[in-house]
Design a protein around this nucleic acid. Structure first.
Length: 274
DNA sequence: TTAAATTCCTGTAAGC
DNA sequence: TGCTTACAGGAATTTA
């Protein structure tokens, strides 16, 4: 699943190749993947625009274009954004192809179609409610543990549910929520509101460690995740708990427990996480 | 207002 | 072997 580290990897890989290019045209093969504006209009508007920047916000890839427009890509669960030569055979489930002025193509592929593509100025997208309001970036140096503590205090949902909520912190999904809670030695099903300042500090630190380690390892390819070149990441080899239900905890050796929290499979250690 | 449940979607794997 | 079923989950939407 593409979460913050996976999206960061793709954005960083694409940046040097996309900035300075111009989108010549777009072949939209599965129109409903575009949520804003209307697909026909989208195809018209995106053609001819110069690419000025490539950024990440939460799990969104933001491709900054001229005239303050932004091409927004959210990968959902199975979305892949790849930069290929135009001669590369077109994979199945390829929903959008952007021709660039150097002969390369940016292709969006998404078998499960949970992803989405948007285009507009940031104001227009906010106005159209095409993009939700997101919480702070967990790896931003300006985001402190006290801020996290204050947010958790106000919520009466399980800690894991609050971490998955993109309004709390932007970019954490099921993998890194479990990893962060394990590192912080916190039970995922305890209420967020009851957390101590000390625990919040530990969670803040653990979240950054989990995310930054995963960025260094170019993300987790536990499902269909691939980077901009179609290559897998390395973080899945060193995950502490995600996908390891029933296997021994690396710290205490007890088999890891599994439970559904907030509709998501959650893996944790009943001994290490209290 | 907040939290939980539902929905969308297809590939994969388990079970019979 | 081949079919059916359960499961994976991000986030918008709906319900409580």
């Amino acid at each position: 699943m593409p979460e913050l580290p996976e999206v960061e990897t793709i954005a960083a890989d694409l940046r040097p190749h996309l900035v300075g290019r111009t989108i010549v045209r777009c072949d939209l093969r599965f129109p409903t993947i575009v949520r804003h504006p209307e697909p026909e209009l989208f195809v018209d508007l995106v053609a001819g625009l110069h690419i000025e920047s490539v950024r990440r916000r939460g799990k969104y890839i933001l491709i900054g274009l001229e005239h303050e427009r932004v091409l927004v890509v959210h990968l959902g669960m199975s979305g892949q954004l790849r930069l290929v030569d135009a001669a590369t055979p077109i994979a199945n489930h390829t929903h959008a192809i952007f021709d660039l002025d150097d002969g390369s193509q940016l292709r969006y592929r998404d078998p499960r179609r949970f992803g989405r593509i948007l285009l507009g100025t940031e104001d227009a997208l906010r106005e159209a409610r095409a993009m939700p309001r997101l919480g702070p970036e967990p790896i931003d140096p300006d985001f402190g543990s006290e801020e996290l503590y204050q947010m958790l205090r106000r919520r009466r949902a399980p800690l894991k549910a609050v971490l998955l909520d993109q309004r709390t912190v932007a970019g954490v999904g099921n993998i890194y929520a479990d990893e962060s809670l394990h590192r912080a030695k916190l039970r995922p099903d305890r209420l967020a509101s009851g957390i101590s300042r000390k625990s919040a500090r530990r969670l803040h630190e653990s979240m950054r460690e989990s995310l930054e380690t995963a960025i260094k390892n170019r993300g987790s390819s536990v499902d269909t995740y691939r980077d901009a070149w179609g290559e897998i990441g390395g973080q899945q080899e060193v995950l502490l708990v995600y996908g390891r239900a029933g296997e021994p905890c690396f710290t205490c050796g007890r088999p890891l427990a599994s439970k559904r929290i907030a509709g998501r499979t959650t893996v944790y250690c009943t001994r290490c996480q209290r």
